[in-house]
Design a protein around this nucleic acid. Structure first.
Lengths: 212, 212
DNA sequence: GGCTTATCTTGCCACTGTCAAGATAAAATT
DNA sequence: AATTTTATCTTGACAGTGGCAAGATAAGCC
C-alpha cells in the first residue's frame, strides 16, 4: 500500500495493472518494460524478478486477456442458452466486441512470436476460452457440453470440423475487422451482417443433429 | 551494382530485399531499421530518405506481401477454375500455405497498428488480393467475376455476406493456425479437415445459385 | 540474535529510432 | 561547360530501451 516501502508487497499485480493501462493508452508500440516499472513506482529492473523478461510480462498480460474473454463469452451466452442461433450470434458479438474494446489485448493474445504459452498444458484461462467456444459448437450438434478440459484427443473428426468452421469464422471476422480489412462492409450494416452470417453458420452446424 | 558507389542506384529495392531476408532469418523481433541498412551496405540513416520511418518500410514490406499472396491465390485457383469446391479448397490451401511459409510477412500484412495502408485508395496489391478472394465467392454464386476494383459500394448485402463467410473462415483458419491455436487438430488430419470445411463452405455459398 | 532467501535498486552496456547537419553526386539550368 | 539545384547518402548526436551484474534492503526462519 505505502509507496515508500522497499518491498512493494503486490508488485506482480501492480505491474500487470500498469501494463494493461499502458497498452490501452499508448498501444503496444509505446509499451515498454521500463514504462511499466515507472508507472508501478519501482525501478526499471524490478519486473525482472517477477516476469523474467518482456516476453514473460506480455505472456501474463495475454493470460489475463484470455480470462476476460472467457468471462465475456460465458456472460453473453448464458442468457440465450438453448436458442441455437442466438447462441452463435451472442458468441460472435462477444468475441468481436472484445477485439474492438481491447484491441491491444486481443493482438497480444494471438501473437505466438511475442508470448509463450505452454500448448501441452495450457493455462486455465486459455483452456476456459476454448471450452466456451467448444461448448457452443457441441450444443449446436445436440451433444452434451464439457465441464472442463476441452483438449480431448478422442474427439471425432466431425466435431473438430464443426469447431474449426465455427471458431475460424468468428476469429477471422474479429481479426480482419480489428485490422481494418473489412472495408467492404458499411459500418451501419456491420451488426446485421454478422448476425446473418452467424445464423447461416448455426444452420450449417446444427443441420441433421437437432432432429428432435 | 558497385558497393563503392556513394549513390547506391537501387537502394529502395535493396532495403526491401534486406528487410525480407531479415524477417525470414530473425523474425519481427530482431528486425530493425539499422540492421536493414547494414545488410544493404549503407549507413544507418539511409532508409529515412526512402521510407521516412520504420512504419514506412514495414508498410512497403506488407505491400509486397499482398502482391505475393495475390499471385499465389491466382496461381492456385487458375488450374481448377470452374470446379466450385476445388476453387475454395485451392484458395484455402494457398492462403493458409502463404501464412505458413511466410509467417512474419503474413503477420505484418495484418497489423494495422504497425503499418499504414490507405483504405480509401488501397495499393494495387491489396486490391488485387481482395479481388481474387471476391471473385472466388462470385463464381460460387454464379455471378460474373470482377476485372478490377473489388471495392464496389453498390454490392448487395447478400454478396457481402457470402464474402464475409468465405474470407473470414479462411483467414481465421490461417491466423489461428499460424499463432498455434488450432492444437485440437491432429497435424496429419489438418489438410483433410481444411478441405472438408472448404467443401461444406462451398455448398453453403453455392446453394440455390448454381441451379443450371 | 544470526542466517538464508526473496525482493528491489543502481549502474552499466550495446543497441535502437529519429533528428540535424554535412558530404557527395547526379540532374537541371544557364 | 560552368553553375546551380536537387536527390541521395553519411556522420554524429540524443534520449530511450532491454538485459545483465552487483549491491542494498527487508522479510522469513532457525
Amino acid at each position: 500500500m505505502n509507496a515508500s516501502k522497499y518491498h512493494h508487497g503486490d508488485l506482480k499485480r501492480a505491474l500487470l495493472d500498469a501494463a494493461e493501462e499502458l497498452l490501452e493508452e499508448v498501444g503496444l508500440q509505446g509499451f515498454t518494460l521500463r514504462a511499466c516499472a515507472r508507472r508501478a513506482g519501482v525501478s526499471h529492473a524490478a519486473p525482472k524478478h517477477h516476469f523474467g523478461d518482456a516476453r514473460g510480462l506480455l505472456s501474463a498480460v495475454a493470460e489475463r486477456g484470455f480470462g476476460r474473454l472467457a468471462d465475456a463469452l460465458a456472460a453473453a451466452i448464458h442468457p440465450v442458452k438453448g436458442d441455437l442461433v442466438a447462441e452463435i450470434q451472442a458468441t460472435c458479438q462477444s468475441y468481436v466486441g472484445f477485439a474492438e474494446n481491447h484491441p491491444e489485448h486481443f493482438r497480444i493474445m494471438f501473437r505466438d512470436d511475442l508470448i509463450c504459452i505452454d500448448r501441452e498444458h495450457p493455462p486455465e484461462p486459455v483452456a476456459r476460452t476454448f471450452m466456451e467456444l467448444t461448448n457452443v459448437i457441441l450444443r449446436q450438434r445436440g451433444e452434451p457440453e464439457l465441464k472442463f478440459s476441452p483438449y480431448d484427443p478422442d474427439r471425432s473428426d466431425a466435431v473438430i470440423n464443426d469447431i474449426i468452421l465455427g471458431w475460424c469464422y468468428i476469429h477471422g471476422y474479429a481479426h480482419l475487422r480489428l485490422e481494418g480489412q473489412l472495408t467492404m462492409i458499411p459500418e451501419n450494416t456491420h451488426l446485421a451482417q454478422m448476425n446473418l452470417a452467424a445464423e447461416r453458420l448455426s444452420n450449417l452446424l446444427s443441420a441433421g443433429h437437432n432432429a428432435e
